[in-house]
């Protein structure tokens, strides 16, 4: 890499040739970034590697990076001993439903707040913005009692209760509607006799595709990594999400690190793959949280 790399992009942004010194600097930066990137994912790589280790190797010193006798025992043991697949399914169902719910609530509210301005709507928007900064952990306890009185603890509905709306999502969609959908377009459709619902579904939604994709990924991963809320709402093994299931599993008695790592790897791999697929959407979604401040 060191010998051939510099020739592949010898020109700077402005098209001028880079001096040798600049090329060296770029190479240095590449090395730094590459090393740092590897270090960032190293813990996860180690975890996956541990999943393939035998109990003896797990306890050996110094620790090995690559398993010397890779085994699948940890995977089969953990799948046999814990309802891991149920937990993954619960997490997936929770994350998907939450993302859909947030998409629906945010799109409707964002669109209405953007395109039907009035004093009332202004006030509603102000309230939504104000609650956006209140951390979930602050009102989690009263919400728990709300779920209890609805009788939806230990169920998907109970998990969802905390994740039906997202203040930031409403905000995001509202900004996007203002920026990408001109009033004239809506007026023209109305003059053509289109109903409000038709306009919303046929004109507004398609134009918001990018923002909706971003919000979907954002909401999905928010629910996927939720911890404190599922921990109190789900108290039976069959209703745990993967985060809760694993956290409780690791306090177990006969649990060894190899099995824990196997369980973790089973969870990590799909979420990393999913992220890689949705990366573009996600980056866009996350980035827009910063831009509009």
């Amino acid at each position: 890499m060191t010998d051939t790399q510099p020739q592949s992009h010898p020109r700077g942004d402005d098209g001028r040739r880079l001096t040798p010194k600049e090329r060296m600097t770029n190479l240095g930066i590449d090395v730094v970034l590459f090393t740092f990137g590897l270090l960032m994912i190293l813990p996860l790589v180690l975890l996956v590697a541990n999943a393939f280790k035998t109990p003896q190797e797990m306890l050996s010193w110094p620790p090995t990076i690559i398993p010397s006798n890779p085994t699948l025992d940890n995977f089969s043991a953990v799948l046999a001993e814990t309802p891991l697949l149920t937990w993954i399914f619960n997490s997936l169902a929770f994350a998907l439903c939450s993302a859909v719910a947030i998409l629906i609530t945010s799109t409707i509210a964002g669109y209405v707040l953007a395109k039907f301005p009035s004093k009332t709507m202004g006030a509603i928007f102000a309230v939504i913005l104000a609650t956006a900064i209140v951390p979930f952990e602050v009102y989690m306890i009263p919400l728990y009692f709300a779920a209890q009185s609805l009788g939806i603890l230990n169920s998907l509905w109970g998990l969802l209760l905390g994740y039906l709306v997202m203040s930031f999502g409403i905000f995001l969609i509202r900004q996007n509607v203002i920026q990408t959908i001109p009033d004239e377009l809506l007026e023209a459709a109305r003059i053509d006799g289109a109903g409000e619902i038709w306009i919303f579904i046929r004109i507004v939604l398609p134009l918001l595709r990018g923002a909706l994709g971003a919000l979907f990924v954002l909401a999905f991963f928010q629910a996927w990594t939720a911890f404190a809320w599922p921990l109190i709402v789900a108290t039976t093994s069959s209703s745990y999400t993967i985060e809760v299931g694993l956290a409780l599993f690791q306090t177990g008695f006969t649990v060894d690190l190899g099995r824990l790592s196997a369980a973790s790897a089973i969870v990590l791999v799909p979420s990393v793959v999913l992220f890689l697929i949705l990366r573009k959407n996600f980056v866009q979604g996350m980035a827009s949280t910063g831009l509009k401040e």
Partner: peptide, 16 residues
Amino acid sequence: SVFIPHVVSLVPAAMA
């Protein structure tokens, strides 16, 4: 690579 730790599940990552 810098971003992946932000999206992976908290508990497995913490276990690592």
